Amino acid sequence: MDLQESFINSPDHHRIPLLSWAPENPAAVMVIAHGMAEHAARYQPLAQWLTQHGVAVLAIQHRGHGSHCSDTDLGHYADSRGWQKVVDDLQQSIVHARKQYPDLPLTLFGHSMGSFIAQAFTQQYGDQIDNLILCATNRIDKPKLWISLVLVRIISRLRGKRHHSTLIDKLTFGSFNKAFAPNRTSHDWLSRDPQQVDRYLKDPLCGFSCTVGLWSDFIGGMLEIDPQAWRRDLPVHLLAGDHDPVGEMGRGVSRHVANLRAAGVEVASERLFPGARHELVNETNAGEVWEHVLHCIPRQTVSEI
């Protein structure tokens, strides 16, 4: 159950860090795609708990994130094709997990930014997974996203792709905290647990500003997500807090569920946790959330072994 770190190489010679936790006799495997301005190691408590219940866990470190990312690259996917590169990195991680656990059902778990990378992956490589969990996600609001993309691209042309825009930071992460005024910190929107929020703020690999190049890649990638192109038989689970500003306090998540169903996607479960904010796995009711995640993971039965 101890954390293991390994690397796989992408076609453009990027070294993709993978963190893994393995029980002795796993009955399932889950790959985690983390959120923006955080890192994979933050999922260790959840991963260790899942291994105690027979689930092997691998977590990819996305480009522009994590301890192996240089200061100059922190918050930046790539100078070209950044979105496709992070999606392809995830695909390589899934292939790696399949090689390690060829006979086990594989679940992809995406949180926040990772949930959108996971949806893009599903659109392109959906036959490579058995189950999809989208955590703290939101609907694809195309009119709003197009306006944001135009703004980001204007700034990018004026200042360059690696520019860190104070304006974009205020319009995104800065706006999320307004719903919880008066604020104790700048990131009260993450969790009701003050210890978790403080831990995030003290972590040098969390809460950093992302480049306008990353924002352009990310928003452009979200606009390409089309559930009509997904596998119809892939079970999809959605979970969020009904006080998560990223998911429009649950309203955006509910609309996303409706849009997925209208597209013929198999929504296997949907759950809004009352009072919970953005980081569900680090919330005051984390145990309840972990139990729900475990319940969503298909497992190999004894008769299949």
Rank of each mutant, 00 (worst) to 15 (best):
D2M: 13
L201F: 07
L46Q: 01
P227I: 09
V57G: 00
I155C: 06
L171F: 01
V87T: 05
E283S: 01
L149W: 03
R299T: 15
R98Y: 02
I32P: 06
R271S: 08
H13A: 10
D198C: 07
F208T: 02
D89T: 01
H243E: 00
F208M: 00
P17A: 14
G213V: 02
L239G: 08
G54N: 10
T72Q: 14
F173H: 04
R261I: 10
H96F: 12
L158W: 09
G252K: 00
S70A: 04
Q228S: 15
G207D: 07
S70P: 06
A97N: 01
R63W: 01
Q119T: 08
G160V: 00
L145H: 01
A136S: 15
Q4C: 13
G247S: 01
D198Q: 14
H278S: 00
W230A: 05
W215D: 01
S112W: 05
I154S: 13
D73Q: 14
S20D: 11
T107E: 02
P143T: 02
D226I: 09
N285Y: 07
A33K: 07
I147A: 09
E266I: 09
T284R: 12
D130N: 15
L280D: 05
S148F: 12
S269E: 03
G174F: 04
H76V: 05
R199S: 09
Q92L: 15
Q195R: 11
T51I: 10
Q48V: 12
L223Q: 06
V31Y: 11
F121Q: 02
G213R: 03
V253S: 11
H62N: 15
D244W: 00
S115G: 04
L223Y: 02
R251C: 00
I94H: 06
P235D: 00
R63E: 05
V95L: 15
Q84G: 09
V212W: 01
W83R: 02
M1V: 10
A262T: 05
A276L: 12
I147M: 14
K170P: 00
R192V: 03
Q196T: 09
W189P: 05
V281M: 14
H243L: 02
H111A: 09
G160E: 03
G287K: 13
F218G: 06
A118F: 03
E304R: 15
C135A: 14
C296A: 07
A262M: 12
H187L: 11
M222C: 05
D193Q: 07
R192W: 08
G110M: 09
K178G: 03
T166M: 13
R255Y: 07
K99C: 11
D103R: 15
E224A: 15
Q196V: 12
S112I: 00
H243C: 06
M222Y: 01
